[in-house]
Design a protein around this nucleic acid. Structure first.
Lengths: 223, 223
DNA sequence: GCAAAAGTGTTAGGTATACACCCATGC
DNA sequence: GCATGGGTGTATACCTAACACTTTTGC
């Protein structure tokens, strides 16, 4: 395979990866300083980078997270391709954005000199078109959480039903009824009781659950 | 804005556009011969082409349909970006696939020397990764038809409830109850009775309906 | 009058919602 | 013993699904 003729290769192909994770029970997004004078200084953005000649977009996203964020085992799915001519004021760069989700242990262990997790409400005025990417990512998350087991990629391996419900509430943006939520989610048989209990809490310890599957699973409809 | 450094511009950026339309009440996809020796000869594929330096992917898709299919006023939405390294055996080409839908009048008027509409069941063994694009497009259509008014882009301006139901059945792949379907779809208030009737049919003429909106509208859930 | 598709309601079962109190633990 | 969050059931309203016959037209 050879490269395409010059006249078709005006654009650089990139990936941008909005990564979200729970920190102290709140949704955060991972951003890092962007420094590309003269257009982008004193500004932050999601992790991103160029796609290599020998990898597809998903592989590029994995590599970028590894290289620029020291992150492994991140759940990734393709989100949307941003191709506005001037989305990067320096050059024509087309970006295949991927949604990334990390579990709290990964997120907490994450200590990069530059990149850091910021509460999603504070993610604005980002570099390039990353505000738009952020909106698209949250919309995707909202759509997925009611139709799949995507929550499993944001929660620790063992979690309480209250933690799960709280995640749903944060993503959906409204409160849910505790009894109804439990009835519905348990009826789906996607969770199993580990038999273990919370420890070291100063109230009645909650039962710890885990997802029965490690893969993303489509669901009829929750919440 | 200048172009990116050479080392990042190894890939060509393309669009591929699976276009679907109703012909004689059946779903068809639009394909044309592909002739790119030595890898792609005697094979067909969806319309596609390169993205220009001064347009975004959606604009490229519109232009490609205009130039290669003489098609205007096609409903388009971004589908998925296909970036496998060897998806095009000649060169590295990354393609932003877009789903296209045309109304029967547009589809019927369409008479290109090469491109032609083929029943969706017969769309296989296409060039490049177009079989995969076809599957992704149908899956998207299936997901959208129950959550939006996307059916409006496949039907004539005036249509009968039976035609609408039949479209739902073809896309969902199973039959629906006539009375229940009518109740639900009318309750959504997305249709209005035009007051006109079918003419020239040799059975009781059906009432003609039209969508109240010309834009895509999200719905709670149909069928 | 016959063939073909249009149009129309009711019932039963299941699902969604609203709602409040007792329980186990740490301090 | 008190503060904190965990855990549980019922009654009602709503929605879904199943189902068959009469009507209008062209020929």
């Amino acid at each position: 395979m050879k490269i395409a003729p010059e006249k078709f290769r005006f654009a650089a192909l990139a990936v941008d990866v909005p990564v979200y994770g729970l920190i102290n029970g709140k949704l955060h997004g991972l951003i890092a300083p962007v420094n590309r004078p003269p257009h982008y200084v004193n500004v932050e953005g999601f992790l991103g980078g160029m796609v290599d000649a020998k990898e597809n977009a998903l592989e590029a996203a994995q590599r970028v997270l590894q290289e620029k964020g020291n992150l492994k085992d991140v759940y990734l799915e393709q989100l949307y391709t941003f191709s506005e001519v001037d989305r990067d004021k320096r050059n024509r760069v087309v970006s295949v954005a991927h949604l990334g989700l990390v579990r709290p242990d990964t997120a907490a262990a994450y200590a990069h000199p530059h990149a850091h997790f910021v509460p999603i409400q504070k993610l604005h005025d980002l570099a390039y078109d990353h505000d738009e990417i952020h909106r698209a990512a949250l919309a995707r998350l909202r759509g997925n959480i009611t139709h799949s087991t995507i929550a499993q990629f944001l929660l620790p391996r063992h979690f309480t039903l209250t933690e799960l419900q709280s995640l749903y509430e944060m993503i959906l943006g409204h409160e849910l009824d505790k009894r109804n939520f439990r009835k519905k989610i348990l009826a789906l048989e996607i969770l199993k009781d580990t038999g273990r209990m919370q420890e070291g809490v100063r109230n009645r310890p909650a039962a710890l659950y885990t997802f029965t599957t490690t893969k993303l699973q489509e669901l009829p409809l929750i919440a």
